[in-house]
Computed example of a mutant assay.
Amino acid sequence: MARMGSTDSDSEFAKYWVEWFMSLEGNEYYCDVDEDYILDRFNLTGLNFEVPHYQKALELITDRLPDKPMSDDLRDQVERSAKHLYGLIHARYIITARGLVKMLDKYKRGDFGRCPRVYCQGNQLLPVGVTDIPNQKAVKLYCCRCEDVYNPKSRRHNMIDGAHFGTSFPHMLFQVYPSLKPAPSDQRYVPRIFGFKLHNIAELHRWQDEQREQQKQRLTADKK
């Protein structure tokens, strides 16, 4: 748990709560947001309208929450708000130069997993939101090789809000580091039966049905 009412220097403000949050199971997709970024109110513009108990949540994240009695219910609400606030800050931070560097390191290590598609040959994935609206959709994983998105394998990652990563992050990363984007895979799986492509067999069956129907019509006309 974050330390309340810390008396350490300003350089230590964001250290404890962020470290605790990052250590929670399931939060491996997040990177640690620089304390200077969190303490710059310009970076948080508008978030006070999106997060309940915004001020207390911000104080909790930065270990400035006064050590005053608080009901268990209110404390739970503030903790939930702090997690959500950090996630929204995170979505803004990871498209900054410093944030991209941190997420790039995680990408290179394969922290987000690898594409399950066989022909992508284990290409690394990146977290992405399918909407920027909070509490709508869970985070997805984007493969830059097949340009498709997948659900995380782990249930704990399926609980992460996709808005904490946003819809622009992977594409911003490859705009800044274009050399890292692999060439699209030109391999496609083709269903076959006894060596024949399925769609060719279907065309053959349709042609046979048409010929059979025409033969029936000719026989009927001959009888008349």
Rank of each mutant, 00 (worst) to 15 (best):
P127Q: 10
H84P: 02
S168A: 09
R145W: 06
M103Q: 02
P170L: 02
F196R: 10
D132M: 08
G110L: 00
V139Y: 04
K223M: 13
F112E: 03
A2T: 09
T96P: 04
L198M: 11
K102D: 15
D148L: 11
D161H: 00
S168N: 04
Y107L: 09
L173A: 12
K197Q: 11
H164W: 02
N151S: 11
A14S: 14
L104A: 13
A183L: 09
Q175E: 14
R41L: 15
K197F: 03
Y54I: 02
Y107S: 05
G87P: 02
L47H: 09
G110D: 01
M70D: 02
P152N: 08
K56D: 07
I38Y: 08
P52E: 07
C31M: 01
F13N: 09
T62A: 02
D40L: 06
V18L: 15
F49E: 11
C144D: 15
E59A: 00
L85V: 06
R212A: 15
N151Y: 10
L204D: 13
I38R: 05
E35L: 01
D76I: 04
A183R: 06
H205Y: 03
R109V: 13
G113K: 01
G46T: 08
R92C: 07
Q208W: 09
Q175Y: 14
Q175M: 12
K108Y: 07
P191G: 08
C31P: 02
L44Y: 05
S154D: 15
C115F: 07
G99Q: 00
F21I: 04
V139T: 09
Q136K: 12
P191R: 10
D72L: 03
R156S: 12
M159A: 15
Y30T: 07
C143S: 11
V190P: 05
I193G: 03
G166Y: 00
M22W: 01
M4H: 05
F196E: 09
